[in-house]
Design a protein around this nucleic acid. Sequence first.
DNA 1: CCTCTCAGTTCGGTGAGTGAACCGACACTA
DNA 2: TAGTGTCGGTTCACTCACCGAACTGAGAGG
Lengths: 175, 175
Amino acid sequence: MALGKGYEGQNCSLARALELVGERWTLLVVRDAFYGVRRYGAFLSHLDIPRAVLADRLNTLVDAGILQRHRYQESPPRDEYLLTERGTELWSVIYPLMRWGERHFATGEPLRTFRHATCGTELDPAGRCPACGQADVPPGDVESRPGPGIPAQPRQDPVSVALRQRPHRLLQPLL
Amino acid sequence: MALGKGYEGQNCSLARALELVGERWTLLVVRDAFYGVRRYGAFLSHLDIPRAVLADRLNTLVDAGILQRHRYQESPPRDEYLLTERGTELWSVIYPLMRWGERHFATGEPLRTFRHATCGTELDPAGRCPACGQADVPPGDVESRPGPGIPAQPRQDPVSVALRQRPHRLLQPLL
DNA sequence: CCTCTCAGTTCGGTGAGTGAACCGACACTA
DNA sequence: TAGTGTCGGTTCACTCACCGAACTGAGAGG
């Protein structure tokens, strides 16, 4: 939500959630984190987001306990950004919103499909596995596959390429 | 999401959804529509949203087929804004986001609870009815009740007052 | 050294959000 | 028939978030 920050008048929990997650780009960053994107440069090239905005969003998400920084090398110091438990719970928001957008505003075939990794069945629009009957398939058990709708001029950044090449389990590192 | 408009680079359906629903205030307007708010003035006083922004969001939502205008009197001409089918489907996004905000950022007891109207059971965080086992309780079958956490200085606008006074079925007119 | 990469920060310009004032149609009252 | 109030906006000046391009700084590699 291209947004300012506060909704002070609103004492509703939705307003508080939107103060964090409703800013422009934020949910796309979180979605990429589900896809296994973990590094500044990967978010940057995949999202075409201004560098300053990305730095700000990552900091905000870390401060909110949605992402955590993890130092993966000391010299030069480099961090990656991983979803916390709190962040992982946003799957139940992101997935239905994705499916909603796909149903109503898609231009063709879906670009990605999501399956229950343990049984291979495609998830229903609410994120359940129709075969197992499992109610909330946790994102760690979801496999994302490239869908039938590949655009004419696909993006060439490393994240897009990796996502097109092979099925991939959510939350696992992509690159 | 205080946001600009486009995420052109992103061919993902999430980005397209966010172009509509990700702007600042938009999801709060839609939530109020679920609560049964239907008129410009009611949205205005309940949300404390700038008049111009509200007018813009209502137009955008109507153009996107999420709300529909309904002329309820001719002189002077007055419209109300009702959720379409497409808009109603956003319940599966709004409800989990509300519960997520409540779990992680609430300051006290919940302000509202949501029950399956036909059996009286409180919905689980995913929007299911634990008693009936009904998977997706449609918003029209959800009853919203004032919760235990009433703020010290409650809002006095008509919508807030009505929501505090009595249980109320979603999508039914509030005032 | 020189160059390259990575992860940011800085900075000037633009556009969305803000809030107060204004507007026009109509109803109600005296 | 003038005066007042309501409702649903529009207009306008201001600010602040976003934008993109340039810059920085630490380290790697040659």
